[in-house]
Nucleic acid binder design. Structure first.
Lengths: 144, 144
DNA sequence: TTTTCATGTAACTTCAATTATTACGAATCG
DNA sequence: CGATTCGTAATAATTGAAGTTACATGAAAA
């Protein structure tokens, strides 16, 4: 299965947008992310619907952040993208009659639920501002 | 991404094998797991190579557990299957030059690493014997 | 107003990974 | 020998993300 990299993608795009003051076009974002402008529009469309970014057509159009960097968390972005499946491992059959399989599912479900809860809890405590700060730190380090 | 259900599959197979004393053929396992006998052989082959089960050809052949149920953990089975990818979400690019993307990857990697550690820790504390006991409990409950 | 720029979106293809299927070889037991 | 059963190669089906093509729509500049 191919991994879903949309969260990674939008984070990359958002930080570039934050760094630059003016709107970035889909083509510019696609170029810096080595992907396709249509993919950028499709993915960023979710964020627009959630009010995190704005898009404008025509001259001087493009994408810009409207939300406060300190209020946007990784968890919110994950939800905005439709809460895609986190795990690449799952049960063979979700609603089995077989008692053996019910016992197996119960054990796996418990473990995965705990891991998911931890992940989402971590996601909830990382904001765009945190990432921007970490980027600035890396930038200072390399500039020395 | 299609989810990997081999761990769930082998657990189902192992518990059925534990319940029955004599060897089960690939066709029998495939029937009870609603899959294909070739898939059973391919997946159970990993467990045979790890010494968890044995396989025998010809009449009265098939698959049987050789390991002690109390010593086989979910984590060991996960490793035996080749440690398949746990997450369906990943970085857009693994080794980026872009400092923005490095900051993004670092944040996501940290969160995923913590969740993975928790999951594997839980897996390490669940044995086949635990699952067999849970199955027996469910069986008693339904028989009442 | 016409041209140009940019998003919006549908339709389709490509890609990656698991799972399913077909086919046949090899070993074992009666 | 012959039926049974695993071993394995080769290939197709499946699933969802990502990439591509094509064109409509709207906004600003010329």
């Amino acid at each position: 299965m191919k991994k879903d990299s949309r969260l990674s993608s939008v984070l990359h795009a958002l930080l570039h947008m934050a760094e630059r003051g003016e709107p970035l076009t889909s083509d510019e974002l696609a170029l810096c992310m080595r992907t396709n402008p249509v993919v950028v529009r499709r993915t960023m469309g979710f964020l627009r619907d959630a009010g995190i970014v704005s898009s404008a057509r025509g001259h001087a159009g493009g994408w810009a952040i409207t939300a406060d960097l300190k209020t946007v968390t990784l968890r919110q972005l994950h939800e905005t993208l439709g809460e895609p499946a986190i795990f690449a491992i799952g049960n063979r059959q979700e609603m089995p009659e077989c008692l053996v399989e019910q016992a197996v599912n119960a054990a796996l479900d418990t473990a995965f639920a705990e891991a998911e809860a931890l992940l989402l809890e971590r996601f909830a405590h990382v904001t765009l501002a945190d990432l921007a700060e970490d980027f600035a730190r890396r930038h200072r380090l390399r500039s020395q």
